[in-house]
Design a protein around this nucleic acid. Structure first.
Lengths: 238, 238
DNA sequence: TAGTGGTCTAGACCACGAT
DNA sequence: TCGTGGTCTAGACCACTAC
């Protein structure tokens, strides 16, 4: 583990257990550097990571403060951190999947463009209903290049694609562009999620890429308006 | 301007004008350092900023590549950068506001908690209809502590609160927690945004804080499902 | 093996806010 | 003026990838 990660983790724990209470200053960078036997820059690096996660904020000339965790966030209706898939982030709850469609085809222009591949490169088209504690939760419509995710099977789809990508293929997610909007219920939503004709839906359209730079997924995920939201921490870097 | 900002800006421009084309390597950190007469670390700092903005990605052992800008992003239906307000980010389009409610009161428990203030501290309650090219666009319901935004007037509300906060009060936004979800149309949505009873709405609930650490705004903004989305770039920091 | 980006250091200096 | 965090440097060393 890198030093700055170790330091960040230690400080995070102290914030969470109240050793460093909200709105209070934490020790300055020099002191922390001494305590952890690292340089000031390594401490700064660790604090920058925590600041980007919204846990602390810094005032030049004064020090580093612990953020008072917003009521918005503590009401954690949706971690939506999204790189672990649903499999892990839902605590003790049980996640299962029903495979509605699992085919291979050539991508249409829109999919090819979003995956950054040629029109003659085969892609999986997958529609899955994700169930949380046996109840319909999210309907996913996913496209993935076959080349990047070889040997995908129905069995894997019933568990977690992300687990497979991570632990079997040893690929790392680099990031994602996400577009979130509201939508009217579709026939699929009505059939699988129990929506009615006038039930608002939340849709997350995303392109996910690997650390190698290749786009591995283009997908649209939909859920009922009252079953899940999406939370973001947005730092003003200007 | 800081050196790393200058370097980042230069590189960004070269990516945008095609000097550094997508999926290609850019010069390595040492070369860039020489060209700009800065240290390698300063170049790395600049590249890290660009990587967080989703413009480049780096592979240790290989080099730094230009990201192929996703179709999702280039279809820029919603920059939603949100710290300038609507006033500036809409290009040539005309933004106006209709003030529906502008009152001062004590906050209820929910608002007090999200603003991190006492229940006896006065807040503005503001409801504004934002119009884009004379057409109803977004309905904002905002709470702000009076202490942090003194002398707010109806006239300012007709223009831009954010402009006032920035340029008159000289306050800097530090960041925001945002929660995005879909919702059913309310009576307000029907009355002011032209929604029908079954029109899906997109709602962004947010807490905005200053660089001083104080929360300055708690608000909910709603728009018709087909008028605006929200885009995010999400980097996997693990 | 060579070349890349990543981490880390010690130390200098700057910008900022409080006093 | 003092103490804080921010920036920047030169240079060492590591981890990774390709050949």
């Amino acid at each position: 583990m890198k030093k700055y990660q170790y330091v960040a983790e230690k400080i995070r724990k102290r914030i969470e257990d109240g050793t460093y209470p909200p709105k209070k200053l934490i020790p300055n960078q020099i002191e922390l550097a001494k305590e952890f036997n690292v340089s000031k820059i390594t401490v700064k690096n660790a604090l920058d990571h925590l600041a980007r996660a919204g846990m602390v904020y810094k005032k030049s000339g004064l020090g580093t403060y612990v953020r008072d965790v917003s009521a918005l966030v503590s009401a954690h209706d949706a971690p939506a951190n999204a790189f672990n898939g649903l499999y892990h982030d839902s605590g003790a709850q049980h996640v299962a999947s029903k495979v509605i469609k699992f085919e291979v085809s050539f991508p249409d222009e829109h999919v090819a463009k979003n995956l950054g591949i040629a029109k003659n490169e085969p892609v999986y088209e997958i529609i899955r209903l994700r169930l949380l504690d046996q109840k319909p939760f999210i309907l996913e419509h996913t496209f993935m290049p076959v080349r990047l995710v070889p040997d995908l099977t129905n069995e894997i789809l019933h568990k977690s694609i992300y687990q497979y990508i991570h632990h079997k293929l040893h690929l790392q997610f680099g990031g994602a562009y996400r577009k979130i909007h509201a939508a009217k219920a579709s026939d699929y939503d009505i059939q699988y999620l129990g929506a009615k004709k006038d039930t608002p839906m939340l849709e997350i359209e995303q392109v996910v890429w690997l650390t190698t730079g290749s786009n591995i997924e283009y997908s649209k995920s939909r859920n009922l308006y009252n079953s899940r939201g999406y939370t973001v921490v947005d730092l003003n870097e200007s």
